[in-house]
């Protein structure tokens, strides 16, 4: 049964991804093609510069031929709906083309290489932050639910509301202002020092650079999670079997972390994954403040340099990661809560 459920969900995810890429392709068709045309012009110019000892007429002829051939290659002479489909298929198969300005660390201009460099850095930062957020969030949430309306519950709920509308990137600015330029204990930007140290020191150096972005993400993230955990756990603590467990004299911590947490696991994991997805969808540009060279920082650079191919590739990959996250979310939920995969309609 689970196999069926999983296959269905994955196929649905793939279909959704294709559909979204198709919509994006239609939406941004004209700007993408303008960039393509100027890239073709550039290539023709480059090639004609290599030619030597030719007269004007021959050069003109060569340029026209090349231009036409390239336009045919890129299918720019086809009707518009065909171009949109073609562009969408290109994107789905990860053919993002060449960037206009941005280069990878090896100096390549292939958009896929540039993005592939950025993905792991983003994933590491956000998943590690999510792990810490979940740990702190669950712990604090359980403590809050234990004495609802108590002073701990009230004060932390207040903090939850205070940070509710606070932009992560602004907190990042403040953290840099304080920890980098006032109390000089953290570096301001990047993943490692330049030049990067060798061996064990390399790892330490990287940790040192990761500390501040991580601290910022966790500091703003776990309050909301704790609030949700509290509400979920509060519902479970009303159940009869919890009362029975307490009546049997099982220690409070065991009731809390054993009995309650197991029942609360499915919604808790959903919430945690959702908060991870939320940070991809909502606070990814915070990387730009720290010059953390991930996907979010790539948006900054691409916007500033007006590099359309990189922008489009970045968007496609972000949408893909988000889709993958949603699929994983449903699969875990189905795994933990057997009712989901059996019930036909949600």
């Amino acid at each position: 049964m689970y196999k069926w459920f999983a296959t269905k969900r994955i196929i649905k995810g793939l279909f959704m991804y294709a559909l979204l890429i198709f919509i994006m392709s239609a939406l941004f068709n004209s700007v993408v093609e303008t960039t393509m045309r100027s890239q073709i012009e550039e290539q023709v110019r480059l090639e004609s510069m290599k030619l030597k000892n030719t007269n004007t007429a021959a050069l003109q002829k060569f340029q026209n031929e090349r231009r036409e051939k390239l336009i045919k290659n890129y299918k720019l002479d086809r009707p518009i709906w065909e171009r949109i489909v073609y562009r969408a298929i290109d994107t789905i198969t990860f053919k993002f083309g060449k960037s206009t300005i941005i280069k990878s660390s090896q100096g390549e201009r292939d958009v896929l290489t540039i993005i592939a460099e950025a993905i792991p850095r983003s994933l590491i930062l956000f998943t590690v932050a999510a792990v810490f957020e979940i740990l702190f969030g669950i712990y604090l949430g359980l403590k809050k639910a234990q004495k609802p309306g108590g002073s701990l519950d009230k004060s932390t709920s207040l903090i939850t509301m205070i940070v509710y509308g606070m932009p992560t990137w602004w907190l990042a600015m403040i953290m840099i202002l304080f920890f980098v330029y006032t109390v000089k204990i953290f570096p301001s930007s990047g993943v490692h020092s330049v030049p990067a140290p060798e061996g064990f020191m390399y790892i330490l150096d990287m940790l040192w650079h990761t500390a501040l972005p991580l601290l910022t993400l966790v500091l703003i993230g776990f309050w909301g999670l704790a609030f949700v955990v509290r509400n979920i756990v509060l519902g479970i603590l009303q159940e009869d079997y919890i009362m029975a467990a307490r009546a049997r004299g099982i220690p409070e911590n065991s009731v809390l972390f054993g009995h309650t947490l197991r029942t609360a696991a499915p919604p808790l994991i959903t919430m945690s994954l959702l908060s991870l997805l939320g940070s991809i969808s909502g606070s990814i540009i915070f990387e730009g403040i720290f010059s953390w060279p991930g996907l979010g920082n790539l948006y900054w650079i691409a916007v500033q340099q007006n590099d359309i191919p990189v922008l489009m590739g970045d968007l496609a990959i972000t949408i893909g990661l988000y889709q993958a996250g949603l699929v994983i979310l449903d699969l875990t939920y189905g795994f933990l809560d057997p009712r989901i995969k059996v019930g036909g309609k949600a």
Binding site: M16, L20, M24, I284, I285, Y299, T318, I319
Partner: peptide
């Protein structure tokens, strides 16, 4: 299933 901020950017 659309991540809002990237699309908005």
């Amino acid at each position: 299933s659309i991540p809002l901020l990237p699309v908005l950017i």
